[in-house]
Simulated scan of single mutants.
Amino acid sequence: MSENLEIEFKTLLTETDYRMIRQAFHLRDQDFHTQTNVYFDNEAHALKNNRMGLRIRLLPTHAQLTLKTPTTNDALLETTDELTLSQAQDYLSNDRLPNFGAVHACLQRYSIDSQTLRSIGKLTTKRAEFKVPEGLLALDENWYGHAHDFELELEVTNYTEGKVMFNRLLSQLSVTYQPAKNKIQRMMEEKNSTL
């Protein structure tokens, strides 16, 4: 189990910007990994209504169950339980979540029964993640439903300083800021647009 504060800034990218950033940081194919996020909520939208997000993230060698909850200081609290790939696949194939662990305990504090939560969609990302002087930078190519987009994220430890550094980084890269909703929001909007 781990808990950490997530403070991040993000922008959507054009494909041209994505390729330029990839070249600027000398990123090769082997610098990227693929991850799939499967998102959860219940019929009453308890997580969405509480501005929370819950996912199982499938990585090449393991999986993570992560709950994001809002805090009072421009950050999200990430509570994560580590899973093996076989555990994650078992939960996903049964469309159920564990009824134990730190995520389960956190959901209980919000009076949300983890056994009412079901998968609501998924998003696959090809990501390169690396340290830069400003923080942790992630260059993403995302697929969800019929949608495909590109995104740049900077994770920092201080909101005010991070915002300045993110804007400076975009300026240095000659990238125009394009607001980027959270991945779960984009996935749900795309899903609802095709219904």
Rank of each mutant, 00 (worst) to 15 (best):
E3P: 00
I7R: 03
K10I: 11
L12D: 01
D17N: 04
R19T: 15
R19G: 02
R22D: 05
A24M: 07
H33K: 09
T34N: 02
T34L: 08
Q35A: 07
T36V: 09
V38Q: 12
Y39Q: 03
F40N: 12
D41K: 01
N42A: 07
H45K: 02
L47P: 00
N50F: 03
R51M: 07
R51E: 15
M52E: 02
M52A: 06
M52Y: 05
R55N: 10
R55A: 05
L59F: 13
H62S: 11
H62I: 04
A63N: 02
Q64V: 06
T66R: 00
T71C: 14
T72D: 12
T72V: 14
D74G: 07
L76A: 14
L77I: 01
E78D: 03
T80G: 00
T80L: 05
D81P: 12
T84Y: 08
T84R: 10
S86H: 09
Y91L: 11
Y91A: 02
S93Y: 11
P98G: 10
P98S: 06
P98E: 05
F100Q: 03
A102P: 01
C106T: 02
L107H: 14
L107P: 04
Q108N: 10
Y110V: 00
L117V: 11
I120S: 14
I120M: 15
G121P: 02
L123R: 15
T124E: 11
K126D: 12
E134S: 08
G135D: 14
G135Q: 05
L137T: 13
L137I: 06
A138V: 15
W143E: 14
H146T: 06
